[in-house]
Design a protein around this nucleic acid. Sequence first.
DNA 1: TACCTCCACGTTTTT
DNA 2: CGTGGAGGTA
Length: 751
Amino acid sequence: MTPAFLSGLNEPQLEAVTLPAGPIARQAFSGSALILAGAGSGKTRVLTTRIAWLIQTGQASPQGLLGVTFTNKAAKEMLLRISAMLPINTRGMWVGTFHGLCNRMLRAHYREAGLPQLFQILDVQDQLALVKRLMKQMNIDDERYPPRQAQWFINAAKDEGKRAKAVEPHDEFTRRMTEIYAAYDTQCQREGVVDFAELLLRSCEMLTRNDPLREHYQDRFRHLLVDEFQDTNRLQYQWLKLLSGRQSCMFAVGDDDQSIYGFRGATTENMRHFERDFHVEKVIKLEQNYRSHGNILDAANALIGHNQHRLGKNLWTSEGKGEPLRVYEAATDLEEAAFVVEEVKALRNEGVGLGDMAVLYRSNAQSRVLEHALFNASVSYRVYGGLRFFERQEIKHALAYLRLMAQSDDDGALLRVINFPTRGIGARSIEQVQTVASERGISLWAAACLNTLSGKAASSIGAFVTLIEKMRAATQGLPLPEIIEHMIEHSGLRGYYQNEKEGADRLENLSELVNAAAAFVTENDVWLVGDIPEVQVDAPVAMQTSADYETSPRTDDVLASFLAHAALEAGDHQAEAGAEALQLMTVHSAKGLEFHAVFISGMEEGLFPHENSIMEPDGLEEERRLMYVALTRARRRLYLSLAQSRMLHGQTRYNVASRFFHEIPEALLRRINARPRYQEARARGNAVTPLSVDIATGIPWRIGQSVIHAKFGTGVIVSAEGRGAEARVQVNFRSDGLKWLMLDYAKLTPV
DNA sequence: TACCTCCACGTTTTT
DNA sequence: CGTGGAGGTA
């Protein structure tokens, strides 16, 4: 009998879903599979159907498999689809993000991991604050050693699986960074906090060190299924390997052509390593695309074909060719934006939903001009990438109070709120506490609790300590939303924002936090008491038992879970409000999404591909993959637009068209306007400055003029100086960058 | 302590 | 051109 959920799959999809797995072969890991799934080829469907099939056919129990994704959204989607196919409760399944699953594991085995029971998770902001604090304490010059770079260094090292002592310092800079890293780790341990990368690293170390524990999980997870495998970094791959036993089958789905997070340590090498380490016999390719029309796919295939390092695949569709790609060349960024607005309005009038259109750009800075134009035209739009709910100032303050109540050694939390709202604890008082803390190697909270402070500090800080302890005592045993309610009231946050002029929104967000907590409790009650106990291991190691969890969840546990949730799932980048809004986002954010119509704006050398990427080893190839992602977002209509001049960093820049135009067959492109000429643009009042050179020759050289040079190829005149025979122009060449040329000698041809 | 002014900086960012 | 952080001043 064929399960209903298998119907409608195409041949390779079906093959992937029903690939024999398990102990058929004797070789370790055999049965593992790599699914090379192109954009829009039904990757998520294959992954979830595979899970359903494994369970339905009795090859796996819901508890015996592990499903890993990168985003919370993908994890939710996966669970949703599984429960649509099978009548099972997905709640206790180990399906989640790398970080979420690591968090779960570390909570269950906090002693083995060497962590306090209620360890807190630092988000990016918290982490940076800690690094800064530490560097100040260590007297490190933050000019020579910028804290951001230290943070980057630490995360990069952790993503490689390296502790400070494993880093080899080649020079003074890395030596210093390593020092900071070591101190940072010590401090985190002292405070009982972990950053994102630490969740992974700590899990890996625990599993490596603790044989019974590792064997327990290896034995339990017979099937490991990984989404977006091309985005895994070394550490994540190591984690997956540690969880795979001799009986385990790994099912990895990914697309090397959509690997766009190399700058964060993701490496497609993992795909090659995977084939080798897990004895993958056959790579299944999903190449039929269900999203886009043929011309769009042809363009994407042609473009990505310029990359050298590929596993190789070609998308195709059974749909027609559709429309050509529309290319619009504007004189200025303002004109480009105006074009987008007009076209969006036209499409809307044709019946295309605003929410089914997106404007993509390479970098966030490009959104401003677009927003401005859209706002003036009263087109509703939504920009991705703003502050998320749990990252808002008032929410961070509230969370800091909660963190302090749960786990007082959290210095970052203490520093955030010890004088917010102001309660007369100035820098001097805090300094006193810090001195005591560092002298004795204890947390700020512990230092504040000692009676060693003098003068004004003693009483004000004593009052703060009492405040926190009172709130803790008063909320003991209360449901989470009431705890938060109480805290907002008694911490003084409510009072503070009530007096603020712009406090209304913030107060609203604080109420929203209470709602979020209520929702969290409702959604997770089973998880808290029901799931963790089965992680019990009967092994001769000291390990907490299920008994710890069988009673109803302690207030602290619920609070800690909620705080972890807040850190790991900071919320949507912006509320879903008004789905009928044009979507504005970076190409990175667009990954995984699709739209009827897509505008890729800023198709210029220096912007896309980004100038900084050209220097990096795999930089251009990653930019091309990024472009590939951008192209494949569109279902029916695709616009590529560029501006000859654009305001960037307060200066007008003149860029040439992106090289990616030359990598797409001209037959697929339709240029929908004549190349604007600068004179005309100027006449229309656009900022195109005439060249200050004396035009003795009669050739109307102008700033922004596109030219061709016999040796350097195409470029744009960027600036000029001198007159007559002395006249020189600076030209921005596509391949060779900026060059100064004597007008009299260089044989420039206007384009 | 709060506000203001000046200066430096300016890819991408699932967790 | 805008922003955010740091530092100075009322």
